[in-house]
Amino acid sequence: MQARMTRRKAVNALMMALSTGAAGLGLLVLALILAHLIFKGAGALNLAVFTQDTPSPNDVGGLRNAIVGSLIMSVIAVAIGTPIGILAGTYMAEYGRFTKLTKVIRFVNDILLSAPSIIVGLFVYQMLVVTLGHFSALAGSVALAILVVPIVVRTTEDMLLLVPDTLREAGLAMGAPRWLVIRQIAYKAARAGMVTGVLLAIARISGETAPLLFTALSNNFFSADLTRPMASLPITIFQFALSPYDNWQALAWAGALLITVAVLALSIIARLVTSKKDKS
């Protein structure tokens, strides 16, 4: 009996030590990656990164065209994806809550949520690049929008379902039509969560590389023309990191740091938006 207890305790100590070790190892590796990124990226950051365009090899330059390109395409992607996502989520939580269609869409949406982003790139290539005959920033934006939609749909539906039905009933009893109840009552109650969804969607697309590879392509020059190829931070990082030139590699690290900071900042803000709501 005593021996058995000792053995059980030993197994327990061993397994708990292993799980603590796993946590230590995992966090260590991830911390190493971040530390190296900050070290290399911060070393390559300077004012020129923001004020000059991508240089030729071994020349001075920055990432201005890539940063602006990423911003433009992200804004358009959010502008296209958010309304579609919110409306679809509204259908699933409000008008069609109990329909079969909603079940199907929930399934499809969850597939889209995790589908490989390079597949989305291939789809938009077939749809907008082949038919229009050239690569364009617009195609890149649409590819990113397709990644925005499922995230917004998911959070919108989840948040609207959390709104108590008594609120809706109170509104309807006042004689308000359903669309007014949704917009004035349900959206207001679910606003923080819905904003979080959009912020998370922006965080997700700001680092996406694969869907832009053969839609927006890239551009060595500054361009705000949506019908032409446009530079973006992830693609520039991809190209510069694989190049043999020191200055290009340094810029790749600077870009990687910028993206990571942006993504982390967006995720943290997204959290703050919801946690503030919880307190009030």
Binding site: I33, G207, I237, A252, I259, V263, L264
Partner: peptide
Amino acid sequence: GIPSIIYGI
């Protein structure tokens, strides 16, 4: 949430 390109580089 860190983009995969960071792990790649």
